[in-house]
Amino acid sequence: MGFRDRGLEIKTPEQIDLMRVAGRLVGETLELLRDAARPGVSTQELDTLAETNIRDHGGVPSFLGYGVPPFPATICASVNDQVVHGIPGPRTLAEGDVISIDCGAIVEGWHGDAAITVPIGEVADDVRDLLRVTEEALWRGMAAARLGGRVTDISHAVESYVRSQGRYGILEDYTGHGIGTEMHMEPSVPNVGRRGRGPSIVEGLALAVEPMVTLGSKHTDVLEDEWTVATVDGSMSAHFEHTFTVTPQGAWVLTAVDGGEARLAALGVPFGGR
């Protein structure tokens, strides 16, 4: 087991390697779902595909049965104004929709957690820009992390990039988080904030960073199913997430299929994977 430092679970290099196995499975599952998400496909079909792939590769879905009330599915499937935690069901995707797919898997007791937002067919230009900005903010956030830095260095980078791109709503009530032997752990990783605050980023700390951005208000409501989070003004939303860590060599995105090497290189960040 990793040890806890001021409430944080700090993993050994060998335990981070185990997290990479879970993370790669999540990343590969999301790529499978990205290819399958098209007009006429139901969110339930995507959920079934995700569960089958995770279990066929020795994993257990992280989300299934999680929380109160117990989450009833393998993925969160959030369409259009639904930001996060949407429950899969009979709804079929249509041209012009976007769907946030959040996926988690456990392998040998270690978690991986990531999310993508996928355009269905052709979407409006402002929606496509929203997806681009949100995903780039995720990578800018991870690129800002350094050993000896602080968690809100990530927050500041996410917020600064989004603000530089236009007038968007950034959710503040929902944040990223620590991850390891549990899916949600300390510390929280906000998507807004001043740099230089929060816990130190140390070797062995694993974090899930997940910007949630809208075309309108940052304010949301939880729907009657007690899970789905939707924008109060009905504006379209996007959500991207990765689990990552920082090694002495650089950043390592545990849920990216290539470990994040290509995107980190484009941002001038050393790759810390093995």
Rank of each mutant, 00 (worst) to 15 (best):
W252S: 00
G89F: 02
W227I: 01
A157R: 13
W252G: 00
T29W: 03
A22R: 07
W139A: 15
L64T: 01
A230H: 14
R38G: 07
L264G: 03
W252K: 00
H177N: 14
S160N: 06
L147G: 08
T92Q: 15
A50N: 06
R20G: 03
A22W: 04
V209N: 01
F240H: 09
S200H: 13
P90Q: 09
L147A: 10
D221N: 15
R163G: 03
E241W: 00
E182M: 06
I120D: 03
I87Y: 01
M183W: 09
R140F: 11
P69G: 02
L264H: 04
V232I: 13
A157H: 06
V162K: 02
S217A: 13
R146T: 08
I10N: 02
A266I: 09
D17Q: 13
S100N: 14
I201L: 05
G148D: 01
V84D: 09
P199M: 05
C103Y: 02
R91Y: 14
S160T: 12
D81Y: 10
M1A: 14
R132K: 07
T74I: 11
S200K: 15
T43R: 13
H239S: 11
D81V: 04
A238L: 05
L18E: 11
E31M: 07
R194E: 15
T92Y: 14
A137N: 12
C76Y: 02
R140W: 10
A206S: 15
G259C: 00
R91D: 03
V83I: 15
L131Q: 09
D129C: 00
I120E: 10
V83E: 02
G234M: 08
H57G: 09
G198V: 04
L33M: 06
A238D: 08
F3G: 12
D35P: 00
G259P: 01
T245M: 04
T152D: 13
D17V: 09
G148R: 08
G121V: 12
Q249V: 00
P69I: 08
G7A: 13
T48Q: 10
I16L: 13
L147N: 04
V213W: 00
S188N: 09
T243N: 02
N191W: 13
I106H: 01
L171K: 07
L32A: 01
H219Y: 14
F63G: 02
H239E: 10
S155L: 08
T255G: 05
E136S: 09
G166Y: 01
R4C: 09
E45A: 15
R263P: 00
R20P: 04
D233A: 03
L223C: 05
E108C: 11
H177R: 12
G180W: 06
P13T: 15
L223A: 13
G260I: 01
V257F: 14
L264T: 03
G109R: 12
L64I: 04
P248R: 14
F271M: 00
A114W: 01
G268E: 06
V83A: 06
A77Q: 11
V222Q: 07
W252I: 00
L30K: 03
A265I: 12
V229W: 01
Q82I: 03
T48I: 11
R194W: 10
G272A: 05
M1C: 12
S200T: 14
R163W: 03
